[in-house]
């Protein structure tokens, strides 16, 4: 790992977490540098989403420490934009795209009253950034899967975050849109640190700087190192084998 402690934006040290008796993550160490684009891959139920939730402060580790921007995750979470795998809302909720994106502005400004002009401008900018400004007045019920994904990305950007965390953002869109979204992310990566969970390591390797393989334990590879044996190991037999090799 090349990053020094000075420019690390996320630091995970010796973190373990289990749901009940079932261990999900064991002694995870991970340091993410400023403006890195980290891909997180691994099998289903391997702990990828759990790791994200720990970094977001939605879960609390049973052992170890997590620091985001030098602070505990709960205090730092307003500096994070989060794009969930599944939208956490009912698709028939009577609300416009603009209102959804504005919700990304919560936690800025005063705690009461309506949204301000600055909020509306930030929401508008975020929609422009993902090329979805014409969707602003639309109802969310009328959006396609790909449009909704852009709106969720815009909502995350509206908060003007320093870190962007995405959980399988392209799981429900077609290939062309997937490349589109990744082109957007490449541009955003010029100013933001990005963590992205994906199942498609071959595809994301063109965009990311480093990949973390999570299957209860975690091992990092630089992207140049993602050659066919690694990918095979990921998709064939359990990733744990990769992890063991690297623990030597």
């Amino acid at each position: 790992m090349t990053e020094t402690s000075a420019d690390a934006v996320i630091r995970v040290a010796g973190v373990s977490f289990s749901y009940g008796a079932e261990p999900a993550l064991e002694r995870i160490d991970l340091t993410v540098a400023e403006r890195e684009f980290l891909g997180i891959v691994g099998p289903n139920a391997g702990g990828k989403s759990t790791l994200l939730k720990l970094i977001l402060g939605l879960l609390v580790p049973q052992a170890g420490r997590i620091e985001v921007l030098g602070r505990p995750p709960r205090q730092a979470r307003r500096a994070i934009g989060y794009v969930p795998q599944y939208p956490g809302f009912a698709r028939d909720f009577p609300i416009s795209v603009e209102q959804v994106v504005l919700m990304g502005r919560l936690g800025t400004g005063p705690g009461f009253g309506g949204y301000r002009r600055a909020d509306r401008l930030a929401a508008r900018r975020a929609l422009e950034e993902v090329e979805a400004e014409e969707l602003a007045p639309r109802q969310i019920t009328t959006l396609s899967g790909g449009q909704l994904q852009r709106v969720l990305l815009a909502r995350a950007l509206a908060s003007e975050p320093r870190i962007l965390i995405l959980d399988e953002p392209t799981a429900s869109v077609d290939q062309r849109l997937e490349s589109d979204i990744f082109e957007h992310l490449r541009v955003l990566n010029e100013r933001l640190t990005i963590l992205l969970v994906s199942h498609d390591v071959a595809f994301i390797s063109r965009y990311i700087t480093r990949v973390a393989c999570v299957n209860r334990t975690l091992v990092c590879h630089r992207t140049e190192a993602i050659d066919s044996p690694v990918i095979e190991a990921l998709y064939g037999e359990p990733v744990r084998r990769v992890a063991h090799e690297h623990r030597l």
Partner: peptide
């Protein structure tokens, strides 16, 4: 704003 966010998407509201 807060009540609407809690009605719409609790996880997002918590993260904000």
């Amino acid at each position: 704003r807060q009540l609407l966010a809690v009605c719409f998407d609790e996880e997002l509201a918590r993260l904000r």
